[in-house]
Design a protein around this nucleic acid. Structure first.
Lengths: 194, 194
DNA sequence: AGAAGACCATACGGTTGCGTATGGTTCTTG
DNA sequence: CAAGAACCATACGCAACCGTATGGTCTTCT
């Protein structure tokens, strides 16, 4: 039986590098994906890295691909499962996504580096997919195509902005449990009413 | 009479470096503020730079300070001048700021580097100031303090998000003149009604 | 004019990261 | 078990920056 203990200093795999790369992105952004530091972090050397990957960019791409799978799949799938009516689903989505935004630092890091050639397509894809999904929700609720589009755009903008705010001026955001809840309620109302 | 022709290759001043630094930020983000490249761009050498500035960071700070003055002053001041009633002022502000967001690339670059020690305070300041200003507007319109706060937060979030969207997935945004106008109208309504 | 200060170029040393080369080890498998 | 494959460490060379040192060259002011 293969022991997979604490740090068996066993040989590394592509996945190990990808994991540590994602961790680095979460902590220090894209720039933190640097071969030598990551190697140090794994107790390995560049020799190992360049065996598993063509170059730094390959690691970046692979990491983002992996993140994209896990991340996007999780959110929408989970929401679709919810059997509730569309209005409830939208509420749940907003609530869920607001929580997530303040925790998933990879996402935040990617937003900050939206221009990077490896990041841009990923971000474009998940952005479009999410807006699409939200738009469908609004349509299900009963809004016309144009209205649903506008509403989903506004909703997603608000979401993105909220994420940014949490980063650049968290002091302005509602702090206490109750305050947060009330604000969330306000947002949901503003986005779904009329 | 002092001739100030096209490129008189005259001696440089602090302001020259600050200007080229801001231009670099607009084009390539904070990372583009690198002494040697900027020197090349000015047809000068590092010798000149280190005469005018302590180090790279000093240039960064000075540039951001200058940008902050010009930028924030411009927006709010202009809006306050507008003698219209608060609702109109809000509409104008939203419209104005939406246009700006798609053009001022320094602002966008700063958002992308919100964590940087030289950027964070600047961003924090202008963010708080703007939310404050917007909140006052909502209060003037007649909303209670709590409501005004929520509304201004949502409005500013939407604004930030819109800026991000324009960067990461411009294809999702309304394209044509009429479409843009209709969307703007929708946003204004959603934010001010109820 | 000529000295003092302002301004700048060049050369140098140091750091960090990329990618390559080369020679081990350690598995795996016939 | 021996050979080939998989995996890894060390040592290099290279490039982009930062910041310093040193010695000019303009300006200005007396």
């Amino acid at each position: 039986m293969a022991v997979t203990g604490a740090r068996p200093r066993q040989r590394l795999s592509r996945v190990d590098w990808i994991s540590v790369a994602l961790a680095a992105i979460a902590e220090g952004g894209l720039a933190a994906v640097a071969v030598e530091p990551l190697a140090a972090r794994l107790g390995a050397s560049k020799g190992s890295f360049y065996w598993h990957f063509e170059n730094r960019d390959a690691l970046l791409t692979a990491s983002l691909a992996r993140w994209e799978e896990q991340y996007t799949a999780a959110v929408t799938a989970e929401n679709t499962r919810t059997g509730a009516d569309p209005v409830q689903r939208l509420r749940l989505l907003i609530r869920r996504v607001t929580m997530l935004a303040e925790s998933d630092s990879v996402y935040v890091a990617l937003i900050a580096t939206a221009d990077h050639p490896a990041v841009a397509p990923v971000l474009k894809r998940i952005t479009e997919q999410r807006i699409e999904y939200t738009m469908a929700l609004f349509r299900d609720i009963g809004f016309g195509p144009r209205d649903a589009r506008y509403r989903s755009l506004l909703a997603y903008s608000a979401h993105l902005g909220h994420t940014e705010l949490a980063r650049s001026a968290p002091g302005t955001l509602p702090r206490g449990r109750a305050d947060r809840e009330a604000y969330l309620q306000h947002v949901i109302t503003a986005l779904t009413t009329l």
